[in-house]
């Protein structure tokens, strides 16, 4: 049987659901950073933050994950690396970094619309942890946008 190293996962809450991303992809947790709006970007894109000389687009995964947190006042961003780019995820609360033996990872069960961005589920002591594929999720969140930018609105749209 091939040896598979135990991976470490960063767990966090979005709403009251617990998610996790591979800790190898995590760069940093940012708190209380002001964001610069990105007009006409997809609605999931909250804005841009600045971290160690890089521009970090911050996205809100809640809708994509099918959770609808109420009364959020969080300003915590979990910054993950996607290839050369860094992205921030708005999370409600950072939890622990945990080790999950690969054998304990089960088929994904996820709330609502999160199906295709959750790669597996781990039953922790108190709750289910949904393992996220940050790349898929961020792509889904950022990809839309700009195509509605051609809407006229004080722009030159031709005269006819």
């Amino acid at each position: 049987m091939p040896f598979e190293p135990v991976r470490r996962w960063c767990t966090f809450l979005v709403g009251d659901a617990c998610f996790a991303v591979d800790s190898a992809a995590v760069i940093e947790v940012l708190r209380d950073r002001g964001l610069t709006r990105v007009p006409l970007a997809a609605s999931g894109v909250l804005g841009l933050a600045h971290l160690r000389g890089r521009i970090v687009p911050v996205v809100d995964p809640a809708e994509r994950l099918g959770v609808h947190p109420t009364g959020r006042n969080t300003r915590t961003h979990l910054v993950v690396a996607l290839g050369d780019d860094w992205y921030g995820l708005l999370v409600d609360e950072m939890l622990d970094v945990i080790e999950i033996p690969p054998a304990r990872i089960e088929r994904p069960t996820a709330p609502g619309a999160a199906g295709d961005v959750v790669t597996g589920t781990y039953a922790a002591e108190h709750q289910l942890v949904h393992l996220l594929d940050p790349e898929r999720m961020i792509q889904a969140l950022v990809r839309q946008g700009a195509h509605h930018a051609a809407r006229p609105g004080g722009t030159h749209g031709g005269l006819d």
Binding site: V38, P39, I55, P57, D85, W86, V142, G145, A146, A149
Partner: peptide, 25 residues
């Protein structure tokens, strides 16, 4: 500074910069 290939794909912004006051533009 690059804003990541996904946002650059919008075709409206070619990048971003950080100004002296730390703000991203």
């Amino acid at each position: 500074k690059p804003i990541g290939s996904l946002l650059a794909g919008m075709g409206l912004y070619s990048g971003a910069t950080v100004l002296g006051d730390g703000g991203v533009v």
